[in-house]
Structures are given as structure tokens and as C-alpha cells.
Design a protein around this nucleic acid. Sequence first.
DNA 1: CGGAACGTTGATGTATCTCAAGTGGGGTGG
DNA 2: CCACCCCACTTGAGATACATCAACGTTCCG
Lengths: 248, 248
Amino acid sequence: VTFPTKRSESDLDGVSPFSRKLGRLANLSSEDAAALEGAIASTRTIEQGADLAGSSHPSKGMLVMLDGYGCRYILRDDGSRQITSYLIPGDHCDRNSALDTPRLMSTLSTCRIAFIPRSVLDALSRSSASIAEALSMAAVVEDATLREWLMSVGRRTAEERLAHLFCELLTRFNAVGLADDDSFRFPLTQFDLGDTMGLSYVHVNRTLQSLRQQQFITLRSKVLTVLDFARLSALAEFRPDYLGPTSA
Amino acid sequence: VTFPTKRSESDLDGVSPFSRKLGRLANLSSEDAAALEGAIASTRTIEQGADLAGSSHPSKGMLVMLDGYGCRYILRDDGSRQITSYLIPGDHCDRNSALDTPRLMSTLSTCRIAFIPRSVLDALSRSSASIAEALSMAAVVEDATLREWLMSVGRRTAEERLAHLFCELLTRFNAVGLADDDSFRFPLTQFDLGDTMGLSYVHVNRTLQSLRQQQFITLRSKVLTVLDFARLSALAEFRPDYLGPTSA
DNA sequence: CGGAACGTTGATGTATCTCAAGTGGGGTGG
DNA sequence: CCACCCCACTTGAGATACATCAACGTTCCG
């Protein structure tokens, strides 16, 4: 399986969520943004449930999620899965990992994914301090997000966990301009949600019903709508600062 | 089993656990190791329960734990705490974080801590590719460790969580030469352990008793001994690869 | 039209929490 | 050197959030 070079023109304003996200994390010049766009030369569409970490990709480099949901996860011997992060549009993931451990990664929905070779990436980082800083900021945000998930699973109730996750996702989708009126695509199953927040899918179901009944959210036909972000944030004790600069 | 403060073996005496740890993550020349030792500008001893993130340190740079336990954590409004990582001897922590969020960090025991100014660190990274690589590997390992904790809290039973944590700690202490006969210093309270693994301190107590009774560990006078690493690893499904190159 | 995947519901079980009351040991001051 | 005190640890009883098991409903799509 190779990377067909197919440039999609369907990005908002021709700007990929990738440079949109990085543009929030550092002050990118228009040259920087253009360079990032240029680096994303090859794009492919991948079906749901596909592996992203394996040998399906040619060489070392970076994956960039343009559309859809991906995740990183860990498996236990008995088959139970802990999802450790989501990749949503604009997110990227280094596929290096000199570490022996195979970093498990897969798609949770149909995805459009770009690939940036390591050489191109390194050149970019070297030529633009802003890009380098944006990438380093992205790493800091990813780390903080992971710690926030640990807090959720360790110390929050089921209702708070889901509320916090939805607040986080709305904020992240907003940051790449893919939230519309507090709504965003959410094609994950309740099973996936359970594997994310350390809950059984049955309990996820009941907790979602509770959130719906209390008018916090609606979740229909793979679209999640936050009905009252302030109230939901309060319920979850959500503080958006860990996600980086939030508004312009 | 007594616990000698100074290393029993003569090898690398006077070498900080910091360069010891980094030396495992990349091939450091003797110049690299010496440069790392030299980079340590100042060393201080800090009592238990002290803040590490605040203004206690002069400027931007990196903290290096030389002795003792530190942690990073998140607090909830109700005061409950989730510890998100341990800093044990050899570990370091960037105190940059352009992120607005104050990164919470404190000591869990009396600590000896070194400080490396950012300028010195940057110079080191630029002058030695090996050091840069070691630092980047350390970041990968830290990330993997965080994900493993998320797996623990999300999907493992109390007994498995503690077992996994102890396997991890033994491996990490071994990596810096501070484990002796499967024993290492463990001055944390059961309260701290609960905040680490998302458990109440009462349940930690009962789980520890169970592990002791089954001859997995002993934990007396702040020394933890793993009685049967193979069995404990099996119980926890511990796979050390995420911690980096393990032997030699 | 049928099957598979996802969602919903009810009943029951259990791991873990909370509350509450001790116990023990290592410093400290007298 | 002893007595005391504080903090960590221990133990028991009862509560509960969440898991598991087992149906059944619904949607989607070939």
C-alpha cells in the first residue's frame, strides 16, 4: 500500500486544519503556512478500523489527520483496549519511535490522512523557528491532554468524564474551524467511548442518556451538539487552558 | 536489607543518575557524559511537600532529580489530586511551558535537585547529536509511561495497578543503578499511591496487604522489595519495552 | 429482506469508596 | 530516656458507582 499523490481541494479556504491548528500555537508567517501546506503533498483516504502504525506507510515521517478520527491505544492480553489519545483533524503523530514497542494506532472512522516525510519536516523546522515552536507547543498540548485524560479516568465520575471529553473535543474542533454552532462530527461508537474513558459500553450508554436528559448535549446521526457549553464545563470542571491559546 | 546511600559498586561513582539514564537512551561519548555533568549549574536539597513549579528557581531551564521522589499532578476543586507522573533520580522536567497553565509539580520526599539553565541545555543539544537524541528518547519514554498509567487506571484492577507500578519503578531504578537486589527506596505514603493510581488510600492499604500476603513484595521502612519479579510482571502484564532499552 | 453492528434496557454482582474507629511507630520535648 | 503526639497505617461495616450478563430494539446496508 502506497501513498498516492492526490491533492484535495476541499479544505476550508484551501487551508488544511493542520496549519490552522499550528497557526494557533505560534505566530506563523504566510510563508510558514504555505510551507506547511506544501509539505502536505500526499493524501490518502483510509477506511474505518485500519491500522495506522504498521508497515502500511513507506518511510519515516509524520502522519497528519485531515479528516476523521484516529486514535492511539494499548491492548491487554484479554483483548481489552485503552485508547490513549484521539487524532482529530489538524492533529499529527510522529511515526518514528525508535522505541521497539510498536506504537498502536488506528482509525476510528473513515479518515483522510497526509504524510510528511521526516526529511521535509526537519527541513521545515530548521528553516522556520515559528514552525519549530508550533510543533513543540503541539507536543506540550498533547502531553497536557494526556494528563487531563488520566485525571478523568482516575478521579472523575462517568458523567464528568464524558462531559470533560466533549468540552475538550468541542474546543479542539473549534480551534480548527470544524465546529459549527457548538456541533461537531462524532462518529465513534459507545464502545469506543468506553475504551477511551475506562468505562463499560453499557455504562456509557446510560451516562449519555443522563447527559441528554439534562439537556447538556444531543448526539444523533454522528453529530454531537453541546447545548450549553458553560453548564457542561461547570459539570466537568473543564478549564480549556491546557489546550493552548483558545480564542484568537 | 539496608539501603546504602552511596553506591556499592565502584563503577560510575560520582556520576549523576541523570547521565546514567541518558546514557541508556543513546550512545553518549565520555565527552557527552562529562558535558552533562558539567551542565549541572546548581544543586539544592528540598524538603518533602515543597513546590517545584513555582518561582523557587531562578530562571527558565530544566530540573533534574538527583535523589528522592517528585511528581507532577492535577488538582480538582474539591481538593482531590491526580498524580500524573513521578520524577525519580535521573528524571528531568522542563520548566518552560509557554502554556499559561501552571504546571503543578512538587516533591513527595526530601529531594536533591539540580538545575540546568536553558541556554546551557540548548548549547549542549546543538553541540552533541547524541545528547539531543537522548533527550528526545527520554521524552518518548515519558509519553509512553503516561499512556501506560492511563491504561492502568482505566483498565486494570487495583492489584494489577500497583503491581504494574512497582514493576515499572523497579525497572526505572535499575536503569539508574539505584535498585539493590530488587529493592529500592519508596518513601511515598499510601495516600500518595492512591492519588497516583486513582484509588482511595483505604483500598491501597488492603491491596498492599494482599500483595504482601501473596509474597509479591515487601514494603517496610520506606524500602520496597520485589520478591518475585517474574510473577509480579505476569500479574500486571508488565512489558518493560516502553521504558526504553532495558538491559545493557 | 436479512444480517450485522450498534444502541437500549433490566437484573444482578462486585470492586471500590466512604465513614468511622482504632493501632503503631518515629520524632520531639521535657 | 521516657512520654507523648502526630501522622501514617489498619480494620470493620455499610454504601454505591460501575461492571457483567442477557435480552431485545433499531438502523443501516448489501
